[in-house]
């Protein structure tokens, strides 16, 4: 099953996106959310991201939804502590954070593989407001 990692500058945003995603998925999906620094400021911490990736390392690939800037840089930095083979299973996707997390978790819960989940995360499609 494909794992999902949500990375935001804000712990509350990351946790909130995780809760929204968990509500929709059908069955268990490995899901982690990381936000803020270890001393509670807005920002990101590559050590915390590394720990979350380690927790997801048994998944069949990991999709990372990150907000911007240091979220992406610290995630890429955390990748470098894994082998090249492991790194190939980590994919940062260009998708809106909340809608992306919900859709990725749902698709993963259907048993889709990494490429199939990524294909379902078209940023233009996801940005359309559905009611």
């Amino acid at each position: 099953m494909v794992g999902i990692l949500i990375v935001s500058h804000s712990k509350e945003v990351a946790q909130g996106a995780k809760e929204l995603a968990a509500e929709m998925m059908q069955g268990d999906v490995p899901l982690e959310a990381v936000g803020g620094t270890k001393d509670g400021r807005l920002g990101t911490d590559s050590n915390l991201i590394y720990e979350a990736l380690t927790n997801l390392n048994n998944a069949d690939g990991v999709i990372i939804l990150a907000d911007m800037g240091s979220s992406v840089m610290n995630t890429e930095l955390a990748f470098e502590f894994f082998s090249e083979e492991e790194q190939e299973k980590f994919k940062i996707v260009n998708a809106p954070l909340v809608e992306g997390a919900i859709n990725a978790a749902l698709q993963s819960s259907f048993g889709k593989d990494l490429d199939e989940v990524i294909a379902a995360l078209d940023p233009v499609e996801l940005a359309q407001k559905k009611v």
């Binding site: 620094t37 590559s46 840089m73 610290n74």
Partner: peptide, 15 residues
Amino acid sequence: LISNVGGASGPLYGT
């Protein structure tokens, strides 16, 4: 710096 900065300057100066 990588472990303590929090913003983009951490990974940038750290690297």
